[in-house]
Lab assay of single mutants.
Amino acid sequence: MDALKSAGRALIRSPSLAKQSWGGGGRHRKLPENWTDTRETLLEGMLFSLKYLGMTLVEQPKGEELSAAAIKRIVATAKASGKKLQKVTLKVSPRGIILTDNLTNQLIENVSIYRISYCTADKMHDKVFAYIAQSQHNQSLECHAFLCTKRKMAQAVTLTVAQAFKVAFEFWQVSKEEKEKRDKASQEGGDVLGARQDCTPPLKSLVATGNLLDLEETAKAPLSTVSANTTNMDEVPRPQALSGSSVVWELDDGLDEAFSRLAQSRTNPQVLDTGLTAQDMHYAQCLSPVDWDKPDSSGTEQDDLFSF
């Protein structure tokens, strides 16, 4: 819950932080000083300027060897085509990944977070970031790969997607708890209302004896509580940590079903599988986004697919 609360507080303090972009060759504004600060901008989305290598189908939802083989196929196909790589912007948030063309600003792909089953910074092609997700059109699994400016960037994108998945799962947990509370309150309110109706004398007997209905007592009954809980029953509950912020979080049926399955089948359902080692994760978390744009010590960066 700490990640969720800190993310909400950060967004309320400075929503404009989320509009910064990394990996864009110096076009961005001043960047936060450390990885923790940038992680807090996830709610509205972190932007990464990358190059799209392509996509291939895979048979399993996750796995280092599986993704490595898929990336190898994608890279080989991209090299064989001889075409310049498409420059894209990857927007990562707890909602998922939005992929747009840098030149036309046209939407290429919009992947809900619950469809993503794996992401990684490839070991062999260490400047490549990739994720595996279920197609929104059918049940097939797709591996999408992107060329980053350097290994640090690939690791940073991988960690960002993993963190977005974690925050999304926490949102789901909060929403589920809130819905259970509202359902319980609604049920209790309905029981109270039913009890009051059972003990209320029939209207005919009131008229016969000349008694008047006590409207004041009726007004004191917990009807307002019942209506408050039943009027918006169809509205999706939102985490309290975000009250007053500009973010509107809505959970669709697909996300609810997917996270429910994860909660039942996995020990740590909030953790998205990645190909990063503990050492890689520690190294990337210690980086400032400013470091992502620094040239690798191995030599001059080449803006070309064939540089790796």
Rank of each mutant, 00 (worst) to 15 (best):
G96R: 15
V92R: 14
K166G: 15
T277G: 00
S135M: 13
K5C: 06
G23D: 02
T104Q: 06
V157W: 02
D256Y: 15
V271R: 02
L159F: 11
A284T: 13
L42S: 15
S243D: 06
S140W: 14
C143G: 15
Y114C: 15
A3L: 07
L212T: 00
K176Y: 06
G189Q: 07
E65T: 09
F129V: 14
V290G: 02
T274V: 01
S81Y: 01
S49K: 01
S93D: 15
K166Q: 13
E33N: 09
L11C: 09
L305P: 03
V248Q: 03
A263V: 10
A162M: 00
I98Y: 07
A133E: 12
P202H: 09
G254W: 06
L213W: 04
E257V: 13
S21R: 06
R27T: 08
V174E: 06
V207Q: 00
E64P: 06
E257S: 00
Q139R: 14
W292L: 00
K204R: 09
E217M: 13
P61V: 15
E109T: 00
I74C: 13
A258H: 05
W172N: 01
D214T: 09
E33H: 12
K87F: 13
S140D: 12
L203M: 02
V271W: 03
K204W: 13
M46L: 15
T209A: 07
K79W: 13
R182I: 07
L90D: 14
V226K: 07
N110R: 03
G54K: 09
E216D: 12
A195N: 02
K181L: 07
T38D: 10
K184Q: 11
S14F: 00
K62N: 13
T231Q: 14
V92Y: 06
P237A: 03
L287N: 00
L66N: 13
I12M: 06
L272K: 06
A241G: 09
A258F: 04
A78C: 07
T300S: 06
Q60H: 15
T225I: 06
T41K: 11
L262D: 01
W35Q: 08
A133Y: 14
V236W: 02
G24S: 11
E142P: 13
Q155F: 13
T300P: 13
Q136T: 08
C199Q: 14
S6Q: 07
G25Y: 06
R266H: 01
L272H: 06
K184S: 11
W172I: 01
V192L: 02
K123H: 07
S21T: 05
C199I: 04
R13D: 12
D191T: 10
I113T: 07
Q173I: 13
T36F: 11
Q173S: 15
T158P: 06
G82A: 13
W22D: 10
A145K: 05
K62Y: 07
A185M: 13
L223D: 08
D2V: 07
P15V: 00
R95D: 09
E217D: 10
C286D: 00
L43G: 15
W249R: 13
K220H: 07
D234G: 02
V157H: 00
I116Q: 04
E109Q: 05
P269R: 01
